[in-house]
Design a protein around this nucleic acid. Sequence first.
DNA 1: TTAAGAACAGGAACTATTCCTATTTTCTGT
DNA 2: ACAGAAAATAGGAATAGTTCCTGTTCTTAA
Lengths: 137, 137
Amino acid sequence: MPTTCLRLTPQRNIILEELRGTRSHPTADEVYDMVRRRLPHISLGTIYRNLDYLHAQGLIRKLDKIGSQMRFDASMDPHLHICCMECGKVGDLPEDAASVSVRQEAMLDAEKTFQITGHWLEFHGVCSDCRTKGKIG
Amino acid sequence: MPTTCLRLTPQRNIILEELRGTRSHPTADEVYDMVRRRLPHISLGTIYRNLDYLHAQGLIRKLDKIGSQMRFDASMDPHLHICCMECGKVGDLPEDAASVSVRQEAMLDAEKTFQITGHWLEFHGVCSDCRTKGKIG
DNA sequence: TTAAGAACAGGAACTATTCCTATTTTCTGT
DNA sequence: ACAGAAAATAGGAATAGTTCCTGTTCTTAA
Ligand SMILES: [Mn+2]
Ligand SMILES: [Mn+2]
Ligand SMILES: [Zn+2]
Ligand SMILES: [Zn+2]
């Protein structure tokens, strides 16, 4: 059996290290800026390709529903996200902060057409920076 | 007091009528195709501008988290959405099909930084068309 | 060692959406 | 009804996040 081994090139390693070193859920070009300090000749295409690769390998998360740009997250333990409606900052919520309960009887009709496989839940709010700005300005 | 009156131009009226005549949650250029049959000279910019206007006036919904394109929905009664992971089709679920319960104690820590104002919940699944295609092909 | 495959840098292409501008339509006060 | 002001429109250019392409370099496995 051909083992689909994980190939960790220097570029992939450094992308992963940088992502693991932040809690800011950076966009692709924020990752680009972080990685370029250590690999000045890396290309943005390599950033995108390898973020996709690492996500496909199950090593990082890809948040494609938050804001207008994709964001990436190296923490794989189950948790929820909250996004500031003013500045777009993304924060973490503990996994048990909220739960989604589904009423089967109400789903039955929908299940005739759609087979439900999962869901996406995200929270919206205002971060502390934007709240203080709002009070002063 | 200056009353901010609702301006319903012919273009806006027809966009609204077409959107109210479908349950397909169309994208902007699908609305464009629908409206162009009745207004052959309308521009895509007018479609976008007026879909934004109608959304700002609270007359339609704008689904910006589903798939890679915005989708629009004229049914304003509260309901949830389910999106086919194969073809991107969007369907409705009754509002009481699912509920999100939030554990206040788990939120307290997060509330110190983020003030939570709302949330977004959407379901993922496979539509019946894609299920039959999968079985045959 | 060598051939095949994978990943790379750099930059072009793609595309959904927004922006710009000259023209037309609608509104408001007289 | 009329004139001036404000808003909306058509058409097309610009923007920007992401993907794709190409020639080159690196890695892996006989
Ligand atoms: Mn996170
Ligand atoms: Mn709907
Ligand atoms: Zn903020
Ligand atoms: Zn489908």
